[in-house]
Design a protein around this nucleic acid. Sequence first.
DNA 1: TTGTAAGCGTTATCAT
DNA 2: ATGATAACGCTTACAA
Lengths: 346, 346
Amino acid sequence: MVTIADVAKHAGVSSSTVSYVLNGSHQISETTRGRVLRSVAELGFHPNAGARTLAGRRSRIIALVMPLRTDMYVPVMMEIAISVTTEARRHGYDVLLVTDEEGPEGVRRVAASGLADGVILMDVQLGDPRIPALRARGTQTVLIGLPDDPHQLSCVDHDFTAAGALCADHLADLGHRDVGFIGYGSGVYERHAGYAERTLAGFRERAEQRRMRFLHRPCEGTYESTAWTLTRILADRPGTTGFVVQNEAAIGPLLGLLKAAGRSVPEDASVVALCPEQLAEQHTPALTTVSGPGQELGRVAVGQMIRRLTAARRGEPPTDERVLLKPTLTIRRSSASQPSPPKEPS
Amino acid sequence: MVTIADVAKHAGVSSSTVSYVLNGSHQISETTRGRVLRSVAELGFHPNAGARTLAGRRSRIIALVMPLRTDMYVPVMMEIAISVTTEARRHGYDVLLVTDEEGPEGVRRVAASGLADGVILMDVQLGDPRIPALRARGTQTVLIGLPDDPHQLSCVDHDFTAAGALCADHLADLGHRDVGFIGYGSGVYERHAGYAERTLAGFRERAEQRRMRFLHRPCEGTYESTAWTLTRILADRPGTTGFVVQNEAAIGPLLGLLKAAGRSVPEDASVVALCPEQLAEQHTPALTTVSGPGQELGRVAVGQMIRRLTAARRGEPPTDERVLLKPTLTIRRSSASQPSPPKEPS
DNA sequence: TTGTAAGCGTTATCAT
DNA sequence: ATGATAACGCTTACAA
């Protein structure tokens, strides 16, 4: 194994000088700097991670905690994991994957052992037990998702409220008066998953402002449950012409069912999907979507973490940032204006 | 921070004794063992990761290298990542997520710095440049996917050949004579992705044995490409009654198109999907599938890695294991026997 | 069975 | 701008 001492000898300097060059922690003359760097390359030196961590009191590792539960859309989680990893690398950090199978003890372990310098938590629940544990330790924490109490941590999430509102606006703009909101399975609402509740709230408020009537129905996403959901909506409000779908799994079934019911999209019914753009073109007709920037979530989270870590190292109090990413409406072919609404008394 | 010395003092023993208890590396009397463990719990001691790594010359971290490219089915990658992580934990290891964005340099860095004790590579390509780098360093390596040269490493994969054969057998058993194989996009075959080629080869061989005729057509998975693929198959072989779909994205479109074409499933056409069980029930009719155990892949890979690491630590040469996981045929409602094949001259 | 002490390879402090 | 040197907290021979 080639050590920093080997490099120092090869370059004819002391090992501290090598360390300075590699960490940029001191001013070093261009001459020696060049010599050191050449030696590093020539010998193929890779600083020992354990020694660095021990001596420097930081691991340059960020822990990313993933939910085991997968009612969240899996490709989205993956996208976040990858963007977190690549962004972390850009800042010289590596990412440790932690599942919450270990529960709160897992994050405690990686934080307390100094394995990770900070923790990014995905899919935060209301009253999440991991958060007090991290706060107590003073561990730098970033949340993807919004907590009840954002004190002492940073967080970033999609602006689901705005996403819901955007759906409502779009359908209202098109002249729809009665719309159905096909949500996630009821379990998701029972756990008070923030993304589901906020989307619905944003939609509800805007729908009311725009004087649309709407029915919200949970849906598990199977063909049968989608059929049942659609049937109920159409039974309760036969005049429904607009649909918002949040459960990705229900999109395919819904389109099939509408066609089967003789309602063609977008002529007789408009569908707006709350889903990643990527899925939009896989359906027929291509879906009008409201979606947030998936990659951005990971990038922003890492940025927040780096800032916290940097501040903490300088002895400054980290800033508790709170970012909501604006969603985008992309109009494709599954939504169209509702040409002749039956006249009704205002 | 509470150190091993604190624990030792609190328990009235030496720090090595604490270490022995925690690592199980020596016989320790039950009495002292109990006392040490109690002190550990009472003080909330978490051994410092950096120090352990430095002194023990191992990090207890396994690097998992994920492909950035996502033409592989994303939920499957996620499933592997999670099963690798949870299984690694059961053996006292953590998992470092590495994307191959850094290229071969990434794995080199992680291995050479001692950040990770071993590397698990997903989605291996023929002639993968990362493998020689790892081999040269003597880094313990496990592949998920089959390499051209399995020398000095272990590997595990689904038995795609068997999966292809299973599809052929099932359709042959049902009496189908003409079948269409709807594959991945042509890019996948051009890169010679092992899983695609092996599935097709297994299917082809068995189909020939069973005297079935078949057409293989690549398919990008969009509705349009699926329509085009189906049209071509039916134009070339109007008598086609069986379909094998490997591209998950094409399943939904295919079912829709068959229905639209007036061919009901399974009465007029059987569909067998090569996909995770999870997807099977989301479609109508529920899909007959041939699928491999997703979780198992991660588990086996970690098992292989642990064995390699253990052997290496003992100075023994690790065994180069090679495991292929048998797929399972699950008959659901999308396949049925072809009742009256038109008589043909044998 | 338990204790002593020598590393492990860096970083950081303090000189120069 | 560079160099000595003392931590950093644990593991592991070796000793007792």
